[in-house]
């Protein structure tokens, strides 16, 4: 039996991990909301970077118009190419890493689009986002495909689901409160943010204290791992003797107050100058 007639099945999933930035999700849902009437789903190109260990970071995306009938699918390749050129001008580091589609999973026509994107990118990723919320959880899935070949002939493509991680640092910085609500009238300012954080810190300290008390009272069995974690955390607070801590603390406070004083003095000076200038203009 020659090699020619052997059915090549993909040998195990490729060990790729996809990291998804929230801006892509926002983009996809915006594109979905703005889809044409009667359009079932939206598709688009994913941009990002691939690191040497095969981890793909999906950083950006844009929607691509397409037409779909029961047995045919046409992607506007011109549009895709133009848009990629434009994005490339802004950020040359971002390359095509795959494509996205809204919907609960892989559908039949996806193989054709995947075929196209496989030519654009090595190991193209398909990201599906269930914007219709067919289940109660948001279904986010990433796939890669491997061709099923019979000799030289390509028979089909097999999709494998790969691990998808969310990179939420940017979203955290903005604050989930702001991104979750349909309407936030005011951005939180510095002091409010700090207040919330200190409040959370206190809550955590309280939780830990309660837990420790319960363990000490013998109400719940002690857990060595948790105990060790707690001990480590407490040990991180540097041991400084009270006198030097006091002087350190006082020095910093005084520095800060001095700077504040300077800033306020400058402000007062400016306000004064403004009043004088308009009250009695020079010459």
């Amino acid at each position: 039996m020659g090699d020619l007639s052997v059915l090549h099945l993909p040998s195990g999933p490729t060990a790729a991990v996809a990291k998804l930035h929230p801006v892509v999700l926002f983009n996809i849902s915006d594109a979905y909301i703005r889809r044409n009437e009667g359009q079932e789903r939206v598709i688009g190109t994913l941009l990002g970077t691939v690191s040497s260990d095969g981890t793909v970071e999906i950083k950006n995306s844009y929607a691509v118009p397409h037409k779909e009938t029961s047995d045919e699918v046409a992607v506007d390749i011109d549009f895709h190419q133009r848009m990629f050129d434009l994005h490339h001008q802004v950020n040359p580091k971002e390359a095509i890493v795959g494509w996205y589609s809204t919907g609960a999973g892989v559908s039949v026509s996806d193989a054709l689009i995947q075929d196209f994107y496989s030519r654009e990118a090595n190991n193209a990723i398909l990201l599906t986002v269930d914007t219709a919320f067919t289940t109660e959880k948001l279904k986010l899935k990433a796939f890669v495909s491997t061709p099923v070949q019979l000799g030289d002939r390509q028979l089909a493509a097999q999709f494998h689901e790969i691990q998808l991680d969310l990179r939420l640092v940017e979203a955290e910085r903005v604050g989930f409160e702001v991104l979750k609500e349909t309407q936030t009238d005011r951005l939180p300012n510095e002091i409010e943010g700090l207040e919330a954080t200190v409040e959370r810190l206190r809550g955590m300290v309280d939780t830990v204290a309660q837990y420790v008390n319960k363990v000490v009272d013998g109400k719940i069995p002690a857990d060595n791992t948790i105990g060790r974690y707690l001990a480590d955390t407490v040990a991180v607070v540097p041991r400084i003797n009270p006198e030097s801590f006091d002087s350190l603390f006082n020095d910093s406070v005084q520095d800060m107050l001095l700077v504040l004083y300077l800033a306020n003095l400058t402000r007062t000076q400016l306000a004064l100058a403004e009043k004088l200038n308009t009250a009695s203009a020079p010459v």
Binding site: L138, A171, F176, R186, L187
Partner: peptide, 23 residues
């Protein structure tokens, strides 16, 4: 002021991690 579509709101609520501390 910040505005989000209901879809985005639902999505973020869903993907928001449970962790009590953020970056």
């Amino acid at each position: 002021s910040v505005h989000n579509s209901a879809l985005v709101g639902a999505m973020v609520t869903d993907i928001q991690p449970e962790a009590p501390v953020t970056h």
